[in-house]
């Protein structure tokens, strides 16, 4: 089980959280064609490495937050509140 640091509540066990998938996926415009809608709905980077994600502390404070996690080690590199800018990760970028 992962130990996840909620930016409001601190480190808590994974069972308190719900993974909400890849972050920064832009919605398709209302007049977009099928390709663009399918891309927004279904295409994911599925990165092997550092992945930006949204998580929700569903059985805690209930709030969403941002996270960067390594998908091979499952280690959380950083978590931060919605609206704050991403912490400096030493030049390690994510898609």
């Amino acid at each position: 089980m992962l130990l996840i640091t909620c930016p409001w509540c601190g480190p808590r066990p994974e069972i308190e959280f719900a993974a909400r998938g890849e972050a920064h996926v832009a919605r398709a415009a209302p007049d977009a064609d099928g390709e663009a809608i399918a891309a927004a709905l279904y295409l994911r980077s599925n990165t092997r490495g550092l992945l930006a994600e949204r998580w929700r502390h569903v059985y805690g404070c209930g709030r969403y937050f941002n996270a960067v996690r390594h998908t091979v080690t499952d280690k959380f590199v950083a978590t931060w509140r919605v609206g704050e800018s991403r912490p400096d990760l030493g030049g390690e970028g994510t898609r």
């Binding site: 069972i15 719900a18 092997r48 994600e53 091979v72 499952d74």
Partner: peptide, 13 residues
């Protein structure tokens, strides 16, 4: 597990 991972392992819960 509920998250994307390539770890070939999973949570004990």
């Amino acid at each position: 597990d509920q998250y994307v991972s390539y770890s070939q392992t999973g949570g004990m819960q």
